[in-house]
């Protein structure tokens, strides 16, 4: 048994690490980046709104794999710089996921009643204060479920990075299976993906509870 693991585990662990790095970097950067894009889309300054809408349209409307290949060649071809595969994947994933998060945020903001803006206005709040302290906090509980959904999709989407040569969990698994001629390794990979998604779901449940605190309680 120990021998069985030692054959492929080190390789898999490296793959998992890379997957987690790609996942965390993407999430940590694209979550905040989605917000200015969402606000830009809603801007009264039309050119800004057009640019942001165009951005979302392109990144949501084309395959992530195409975007990966594009950036993979873009840097060396146009800027004459070589960027390793993993950073290229991170950049692409961040830009792609920011577009999805922007759409979620925009939907959340649009769902807030106009009366909230009016109440803020008559109390003399600035537009910035209104957005930051009144509107955005209220969107949290509606955007959380779709955001978690995207995060779970992201866990699995990281596998796409293998297409430009990032040796993440999927690529590592594939190589291990090839070398060991043992397809049971696929189950170990599946288990690792499942654990990552489950951890996410559990964490999301906690966060959700926090944002539900001000809702009317169900009768017990």
């Amino acid at each position: 048994m120990a021998e069985y693991f030692s054959q492929f585990m080190p390789f898999m662990v490296t793959g998992v690490k890379t997957t987690i790095i790609l996942f965390v970097i993407t999430l940590v950067l694209s979550l905040p980046l989605g917000l200015p894009i969402a606000l830009g889309e809603r801007s009264r300054f039309k050119p800004l709104s057009w640019i942001c809408k165009f951005y979302v349209w392109v990144f949501r409307g084309t395959p992530l794999m195409l975007q990966l290949f594009f950036f993979y060649f873009f840097f060396p071809f146009t800027l004459d710089i070589t960027i390793p595969a993993l950073p290229t994947a991170c950049i692409t994933f961040v830009l792609n996921y920011a577009a999805y998060f922007a759409e979620i945020y925009r939907g959340g903001i649009n769902g807030i009643d106009r009366g909230q803006y009016e109440a803020a206005y008559v109390l003399g709040l600035s537009r910035g204060q209104t957005m930051k302290d009144i509107i955005l906090p209220q969107t949290m509980k509606t955007i959380l479920p779709p955001v978690v959904n995207e995060a779970i999709t992201l866990v699995k989407d990281t596998a796409l990075a293998s297409s430009i040569g990032v040796i993440e969990l999927m690529k590592a698994t594939q190589s291990a299976v090839n070398r060991e001629t043992d397809i049971s390794i696929f189950f170990w990979a599946a288990a690792i993906y499942l654990i990552m998604c489950s951890v996410l779901t559990l964490a999301a449940g906690r966060i959700e509870k926090y944002f539900m605190r001000y809702d009317a309680k169900e009768e017990y």
Binding site: G115, E118, Q138
Partner: peptide, 25 residues
Amino acid sequence: MVFQHFNLFPHMTCLENITYAPIKV
């Protein structure tokens, strides 16, 4: 102004609803 549909801020307690603007504005 007082509105027909109150328009209280649901994510703030009653007290916070009242103190927010005096403090921030």
